[in-house]
Simulated scan of single mutants.
Amino acid sequence: MRLLSVKLICAFMLVVCFSVSAQDTVWVDASKVNTQFLKEGVNRYLVYFKMSKDAARSRPQFWTRTISFENYQGRDAIVVKQEWEDRDSVVHTVKSVCDKKTFAPLYQESWWKQRGTGVFDFLNKTARLNDQPLTDADTARNRKTAWLAFQKASTQYVLNWHLDLEVFPLLPYAKGKTFMIPFYDPGFSAPKHEAYTVTSSGQLEGYDNQKVDCWLLTHEAKGYKEVFWISKKTHEVLKLENEIGKDRARYKIKLGFSI
């Protein structure tokens, strides 16, 4: 009888633990995002690396991201344009169009200095790499992978991983929540749910000694860890600390103003 009671208690505890875990996990879909946190205007980030703990900052870039609200083929849309500057040249530009309510991707065209161009039309379900249409007949590995991934992404709700800094402001934050985000980066691998967890809170000190309360959103993989500092008031991403391997790190810092 005593053994039975112990087993029942253990079973009950497992159910409770599973229930709490399930409540803390949010599978992100169109009903879970709030695009009202996105504002029109220009956001600029300083991006740099430290190749070891005591190394000088290196490989600086400036990422400019411009958000506008527009009409796209009869739909209310949010357009995000990015320009990445590396030293004395532009290395990447991209225009991404998303549904204004759900932030689902509608269209993206991009240019990379080393990779060339890509166009992904989610409404017409067509895609091009370097001005050549992707089709079922493609046999080259990179083209076939990109085409199969795009076909899958076109049949389900996804969020554009290339817009992660615009996706994170949309989420309903609370300590301990884990967001399973259906991320897809057009031109790359197939959509996948990625786990991002609100691990704690913190403060950043801004201009005029202003204290900014932040959520710390953490994403980890083997040999890789990201911690995003997200304003509790505005939901904007203010800082990224990205550990890569044992010693390397990458940082993104939102600039308060720039020209």
Rank of each mutant, 00 (worst) to 15 (best):
R2Y: 07
V6C: 05
L14N: 06
V16H: 06
S19V: 05
V20L: 15
S21I: 06
Q23A: 10
V26D: 07
K32A: 15
V33F: 08
V33W: 07
T35D: 10
F37C: 01
V47R: 14
F49D: 15
K50C: 02
S52D: 14
S58L: 02
R59I: 01
T64K: 14
F69C: 00
N71H: 10
R75C: 01
K81P: 02
W84I: 09
S96N: 13
V97W: 10
K100Y: 04
K101S: 11
T102D: 06
P105V: 02
E109Y: 04
R115V: 00
G116W: 04
T117N: 10
F122K: 09
F122R: 12
L123G: 00
R128L: 11
N130V: 01
L134E: 04
L134A: 04
R143A: 09
S154G: 04
S154L: 08
L159G: 04
N160W: 07
V167N: 09
F168I: 06
L171C: 05
L171F: 09
L171P: 07
A174N: 13
K175C: 00
F179M: 08
S189I: 05
P191W: 04
H193F: 13
H193M: 11
E194F: 08
Q203M: 11
L204Y: 05
V212D: 09
D213L: 03
L217H: 11
K225A: 11
V227Y: 04
F228N: 06
I230Y: 07
G245S: 03
D247F: 03
K254I: 02
